[in-house]
């Protein structure tokens, strides 16, 4: 739960750690505090003072960040900076890793994600995930999409499932390419189609948030452009957090960009600010390809 205080009117108000503003121009901002705008008014996901450990090693240091409703937040940073680890906290994918410990406050719609009573199966239906490598089930295209709704009990009748499958494939921009071969194996599709199938599979269980971990790094530029177009459309209905190594992709698809460095969240700002006039010199060094 968030720490609460009562204001004069007796209204509960969450205490938010203050983001440190950039001080005077030219100073060396070496302090590891987040610069920019890590918080927003309509937070779907709210993370405060998150620390993640793998055994003794600390992978994430005191990260606080909001991800707003219908917002795409891109997470960028060099390999090993903790961006994927942080993303995986958001639907408790780290639970499956031996020795991984998550501390801090993480909430989805103000409900704690790491609460003792939280069942991770419905949590992961609400917070879906798309991975770097397309990983369709060794089943038909139809079953790939229908599997989630079936096991989550969202639909059982064939007609309902048909509708969900068609809708999901349409939203993922794949319907026209596969409508005549729904019974063929999903693994027979091209890489870009497989990734869109995985997105359709994630959408099929009506998630509220979609986490994407480098969803385009195994795809060619055309398939990448399709996915990016799709991300923009999905934003109307979902909240999206995307980890990417492509700076141009972050610049194109997101509204805010978060820069991670050695497990610290260095800067979060409007994407246009990050790519034209970043406030922290580490962000600047990374996005311009300088020695950090």
């Amino acid at each position: 739960m968030n720490t609460m205080t009562l204001d004069a009117a007796g209204q509960a108000e969450p205490v938010q750690p203050k983001a440190v503003e950039q001080d005077t121009v030219g100073t060396q901002t070496k302090v590891r505090e987040t610069v920019g705008k890590p918080f927003c008014d309509s937070a779907k996901l709210r993370m405060r003072n998150v620390n993640v450990f793998y055994g003794e090693a600390q992978a994430i240091h005191d990260v606080s960040l909001d991800i707003g409703r219908n917002e795409v937040v891109a997470m960028i940073g060099p390999s090993g900076c903790g961006k994927s680890t942080f993303l995986r906290c958001l639907n408790r994918m780290n639970d499956t890793i031996e020795g991984c410990r998550v501390e801090g406050e993480l909430s989805l719609d103000d409900e704690p994600i790491y609460g003792a009573k939280v069942d991770v199966v419905p949590l992961r239906a609400r917070v879906g995930m798309v991975f770097q490598k397309p990983n369709p089930f060794p089943k038909s295209i139809y079953d790939n999409v229908a599997y989630g709704p079936k096991i989550h009990g969202i639909a059982s009748r064939r007609a309902e499932l048909d509708e969900i499958v068609e809708n999901s494939l349409r939203r993922a921009g794949l319907w026209n390419e596969v409508k005549d071969r729904l019974d063929k194996p999903g693994t027979g599709l091209s890489g870009g189609q497989q990734q869109r199938l995985c997105i359709a599979r994630a959408i099929a269980v009506s998630p509220e948030v979609i986490l994407m971990d480098e969803p385009c790094s195994a795809l060619d530029p055309i398939a990448t452009a399709r996915i990016e177009e799709l991300i923009d459309e999905l934003r109307e209905n979902y909240t999206i957090a995307i980890v990417t190594h492509s700076m141009q992709q972050a610049a194109r698809v997101s509204q805010r960009t978060a820069y991670f460095h050695l497990g610290h969240l260095v800067e979060v700002n409007d994407t246009e600010t990050v790519f034209t006039n970043p406030q922290h010199e580490l962000t600047e060094a990374y996005i311009t390809g300088r020695f950090g």
């Binding site: 700076m247 141009q248 790519f275 034209t276 006039n277 600047e284 996005i287 311009t288």
Partner: peptide, 9 residues
């Protein structure tokens, strides 16, 4: 190069 930030400016 798709310059960004100060390079772009």
């Amino acid at each position: 190069r798709q310059p960004a930030a100060s390079d772009l400016r």
